[in-house]
Design a protein around this nucleic acid. Structure first.
Length: 832
RNA sequence: GCCCACUUAGCUCAGUGGUAGAGCGCACGCUUCACACGCGUGAUGCCGCAGGUUCAAAUCCUGCAGUGGGCACCA
């Protein structure tokens, strides 16, 4: 059989995926065992605009290992793929293209046409990542692929919205929200980021009416003073006690505002007096409500000053206004001082524009109430189980305990339209459809709310909506709750917790048993990979260079730890892949007469030492690999298989078997040796398959004696052709664990190693043969060595081996090495 | 400000109450009939610092330092 000396990953990668997919190997229906346990993962849906990055590759590898492992264990296994419509991101991308290619804005097209464009864009350019995922080898069930804007999922979203509205969890009202002046939409607290900023703190003086006293307030945003409707001090603050209730003349506006007392104010900070701008600051908004202060909106949606800011400022950008205000205060002699000050500003996490807090009418969801059930679930049943448990369980719990209302509405066109309609007489109707709304409203004259929902709203339903909710589908009954959610830590709040909330609310059960949080992959300098820094490593490039399987081993090893990307690691696993290839190649070159599954007949105590030994090692490798995967310790799993394959199987077992398997004459004994080799190899390929699907399939297909009978019983009745992915994952046979064989074999290994060491120390040429003198002192070792004599001679390049009772029997001029168990080996120097 | 994690060989990382590990790199020797993406042999670490608990600590506790992360309403 002609097999290339070097493994070519591309060839194997191109050969198998399409067949697996076409034959339905990824679908749970393939499992014909009605009593099979169920294993389910829903993929974190990548953005329709997205491209594969290392974080995806890491998550997908972990999910695929788990999926393939459970499938081989006979579980009815579903890994459900899909994509997210990614509201803002997609809309911006299409707008950009529209501008570039046709010089148009979305407003030129109008809403309906624009949305139509987005759909067309999605069909043409979207979902690039799905093709890239096939490259990774992900065994997802493409027949169940979902998109968050699918008709059915849209229905689920409306159902969810309506039910929450009916339960009083969703409300429409005025609130202070994060407004992105660039993207022109409201954002939730999770879509903005705090960033430290070296700015200034301005001390402004407000004159007290009817007196010459002034109250000094400190602010980082002087322009907002135009909207001040009060000044707050701590009620305990002696300095201002006499001013409580006093009236101040707000400079530049001619407005009179009063001094109020509020516990919130920290007397130790600044001057102890705080200007209050209820319409443009979250804390001031709260304070304003507490004291009945009026709200004056002085900044608009484009972050420009409004008419209410005064004629002199109207239309100015907020930063221009800031300069103007400060200048005016200076002219009036009311600017006490300006000091450098570092504080945090809030930015849009998408476009980095500075967020403007605005008072606005939006749709909100009271998350605090939804969070109760998940919190209880965690308290009482410890569900879901986080891996790693620290710190994520606490992070999750703390967040749920401190929830604010979620701003749901977005002033965008691409997304799930809010199912709310308004009548001409100002009533609001929330319904599952326009017809339902008409019936409820008793009129046809309805206007639907123009806004769409936050993208994460539909994501929150992903585990249930993809399985058919709100319908009671078979899939929902069978596959919910899901087994594990694998994702990155930055969406624990945005997504994980919200799926739990909706899952518990509507299904009465956890959305997933476990939550596995992957690590973060940094570049070699420890920097986060990002588009702007252009330091990202493209997984596809790594696949091209080293192969998918090698990359997957690295990613599986990374698992949940933060790590710096290192090509060396991939190279090392590329070498491992090549090692596997060549070990298999060697077995196949000597496979005439061999058959997988044979060669280990009879009682183990009739087998040769190294045969008992390798079977024992295989059992332990199997046991340890399974245990590691079950415990999500992928690093340990990879290490176990790596060392079993390379150290035990290649370095020792193949070497010990070599002479017999390459015997020139065919014989039942030679067939048996060859069968043992391919049998162990085949088991190793099964162990490796969840991690290295392509290489293992490529080799498995070539093994003699594998076929339909090799499949796991659950898949034998299916129409799928034989494939390693549907074989049974090896089960540990405890009776084959043979500590005695391992210890005896260890003695042989030690003997060989000591002799090799002596050869090196003495500079004996590799081709030169030595003599060995072994003194085993009647402790049983002599018999063991004697039984493995031919192998020992071969591995140490010894021409002859003699045994004696004591080391004194060896020639005086010998290099000696002590062996465990009191034995000694001597290499006579004579003739060297 | 509060909280958390991390700190182990030159590099990237495992590990664990009982004689320090892997891969890469390094040194030396090998075209030994599967593999030079290989084979053999070897060197390398006050396991961040300082205390404490223990017969025994890299491992548990306390403090400190450095790095990273999360949270926070300090105008």
């Amino acid at each position: 059989m002609e097999i290339p000396k070097t493994y070519d990953p591309k060839q194997a990668e191109a050969a198998h995926y399409a067949r697996w997919e076409a034959e339905g190997c990824f679908t749970p229906e393939l499992n014909r065992d009605p009593s099979a346990p169920v294993y389910t993962i829903v993929i974190p849906p990548p953005n329709v605009t997205g491209n594969l990055h290392m974080g995806h590759a890491l998550q997908h590898t972990i999910m695929d290992v788990l999926t393939r492992y459970h499938r081989m264990r006979g579980f009815r296994t579903l890994w459900l793929p899909g994509m997210d419509h990614a509201g803002i991101s997609t809309q911006l991308q299409v707008e950009k293209q529209l501008k570039k290619e046709e010089g148009l804005t979305r407003h030129d097209l109008g809403r309906e046409q624009f949305v139509e464009r987005v759909w067309r864009w999605k069909e043409k350019y979207g979902g690039e990542i799905l093709k890239q995922m096939r490259r990774e080898g992900v065994s997802v069930d493409w027949s169940r692929e979902r998109f968050t804007m699918d008709e059915h999922l849209e229905r689920a979203v409306r159902e969810f919205f309506v039910r929450c509205y009916e339960d009083g969890l969703i409300y429409h009202g005025e609130g202070l929200i994060n407004w992105c002046p660039k993207d022109q939409t409201a954002l939730s607290d999770l879509e903005v980021e705090k960033e430290s900023h070296a700015g200034k703190l301005y001390y402004l003086q407000y004159p007290v009416k009817d007196g010459d006293r002034r109250v000094t307030v400190a602010t980082t945003r002087p322009e907002t003073m135009l909207g001040d409707t009060g000044v707050a001090v701590n009620p305990e603050d002696e300095r201002y006690r006499d001013l409580l209730g006093a009236t101040l003349e707000l400079p530049l506006t001619g407005r009179e505002i009063s001094v109020v007392a509020d516990e919130f104010v920290d007397p130790a900070f600044g001057t102890g007096a705080v200007k209050v701008t209820p319409a443009h600051d979250p804390n001031d908004y709260e304070m304003g409500h507490r004291h009945g202060l009026s709200m004056i909106k002085v900044i608009d949606k484009h972050a420009r000053m409004t008419a209410e800011a005064g004629a002199e400022f109207a239309g100015l950008d907020r930063y221009e206004a800031r300069e103007r205000v400060v200048q005016k205060f200076e002219e009036l002699g009311l600017l006490e001082k300006v000091v450098d000050y570092e504080f945090s500003i809030t930015k849009c996490s998408r476009c980095r524009a500075v967020i403007e807090p605005l008072v606005s009418t939006q749709w909100f969801l009271k998350q605090a109430e939804l969070a109760r059930a998940p919190l209880e679930l965690m308290r009482e049943k410890r569900q879901p189980r986080f891996i790693p448990e620290t710190p994520y369980e606490k992070v999750y719990t703390n967040w749920l305990e401190n929830l604010h209302d979620w701003t749901l509405s977005r002033q965008l066109w691409w997304g799930h339209r809010i199912p709310a309609w308004y009548t001409e007489d100002g009533r609001t109707v929330v319904a599952r459809s326009e017809e339902e709304a008409r019936r409820a409203a008793g009129t046809d004259k309805l206007t639907q709310d123009p806004d769409v929902l936050d993208t994460w709203f539909s994501s929150a339903l992903w585990p249930i909506s993809t399985l058919g909710w709100p319908d009671e589908t078979e899939d929902l009954k069978t596959f919910y709750p899901t087994s594990v959610l694998v994702t990155a830590r930055d969406i624990i709040f945005l997504w994980v917790s919200r799926m739990m909330m909706s899952g518990v609310k509507f299904m009465g059960e956890r959305a997933f048993d476990d939550v596995y949080i992957t690590g973060t992959i940094f570049d070699k300098h420890g920097q986060r990979m990002s588009k702007t820094k252009a330091n990202g490593i493209d997984p596809l490039d790594v696949f091209d260079k080293y192969g998918v399987d090698a990359t997957r081993l690295v990613l599986a090893s990374i698992g949940s730890t933060d790590t710096r990307w290192n090509d060396n690691q991939v190279e090392s696993y590329r070498n491992f892949a090549n090692k596997i290839w060549n070990a298999a190649r060697f077995c196949l070159m000597n496979s005439e007469g061999a058959e997988v599954g044979k060669g280990f007949e009879g009682e183990p105590d009739t087998w040769a030492l190294h045969d008992r030994w390798i079977m024992s090692r295989l059992q332990k490798a199997t046991r340890d690999t399974s245990a590691a995967i079950e415990a999500y310790d992928f690093h340990a799993a990879v290490q176990t298989i790596y060392h079993f394959f390379w150290d035990d199987f290649c370095d020792w077992y193949i070497e010990l078997s070599k002479a017999d398997m390459t015997a020139p004459e065919a014989s039942p004994a030679r067939d048996a040796v060859r069968s043992r080799l391919v049998t162990v190899l085949e088991q190793a390929l099964r162990l490796l398959h969840p991690f290295m699907p392509f290489l293992t399939e490529e080799l498995w297909q070539r093994l003699p004696g594998v076929g339909a009978d090799s499949l796991h019983p659950a898949y034998r009745e299916s129409a799928a052709s034989p494939t390693v992915m549907l074989t049974a994952f090896p089960q540990t046979v405890e009776s084959l664990i043979d500590e005695r064989a391992e210890s005896e074999m260890q003695s042989v290994i030690e003997l060989v190693s000591r002799v090799r060491n002596i050869r090196t120390e003495l500079n004996v040429k590799p081709g030169e043969e030595v003599r060995l003198f072994i003194s085993a002192q009647g402790n049983g070792l002599g018999q063991i060595f004697n039984a493995s004599l031919s192998q020992i001679k071969r591995l140490t390049r010894a021409a002859e081996v003699s045994f004696g009772e004591s080391s004194a029997d060896a020639p005086r001029a010998s290099a000696r090495a002590a062996l465990a168990g009191g034995a000694e080996v001597a290499v006579p120097l004579e003739g060297l």
